[in-house]
Amino acid sequence: MIETIYVEDAIQNHPKTKFILNKFKKSRIISINKYGEIFNKRNQNFRIQKANPCLILAHKKDNFVLPAPEGFGLGSSKNFYFSHMYNCIYDCRYCFLQGMYSSANYIIFVNFEDFDISIEKIIENNLDSKVTFFSGYDCDSLALENVTGFAKHILPIFRKYPQIEIEFRTKSIQKEPFLSVKPMPNVILAYSLMPELMSNSLDNKAPSISKRIRVISELASKGWKIGLRFDPLIHGKNWKKLYQELLENIYKNISLDCLHSVSFGTLRFPKRMFKDIFKLYPNEPLFTSPLSLNNKMISYDIEIEEEMTSYCKNLSLRYINEDQIFKCSI
């Protein structure tokens, strides 16, 4: 339940604003001038806000689509990302959003039409390149789909350009925007996964791994392309057994023909971000892990990283081809 919704004056009459507010009839609506008045203030406690976040409906002015950071893509020559939302309804303890914004409130940018224009412009300018778009870099791309309808809105653009890929990276179990339309081979539904035991402690408020796997299996059986993102890989007692069980469970339960790609990423925090997150949640089990400063990043030692990556990769190779496996380095 969202108790308070702040709405920028400029978009009070935007159809998407009305559509969203209609879903929260009991919430208190407060008009604001600019979302920065709430979101960018320094003196806020992220952890307390996260327990009861407010929603902010705002207008995004620019930077609708940006080049993806190095290491984010999956082999395309050009990678871009866009975020119709800042922050996430889940609360994963390793999430970089915790160290990124001073506020835990969610922002939804309601002017989807401006995202459309920017996306199409980039597509038109890059018709000769292999391009992939990533939805939801500053949020989970589908977690609030039932409120925003963003994926449903954006899919028709990509139906027009079958050579351009789009990846929705998520931990959610939202199926609707995909079950109601014909599968599109250029759309990748990419799920972040880790062994259930670890997820129970780290992926707060997110759907359980077993629920995620059930949805993956259902969408794959309908013909949607699936991405599996084992990112971050988490170390701990029995990690080999836990990852073996997880990987085998997935590979045996989904149609492998629909598997677009599998990627593995290690647990890494920029030093400053780690400091902020540790300050917010100093008593979290994640921080009892053997993490230390390596090359300006807080991470497991390289031996642990390499052992985990190659173990999971080798296991995966029993089911899929090498060219389907990628390394996430961000």
Binding site: K237, P285, S289
Partner: peptide
């Protein structure tokens, strides 16, 4: 203390 952390194998079933 550093070594203690470095050698810790987190038992996720406890949390």
């Amino acid at each position: 203390l550093n070594t203690k952390i470095k050698n810790n194998l987190v038992n996720w079933s406890k949390f």
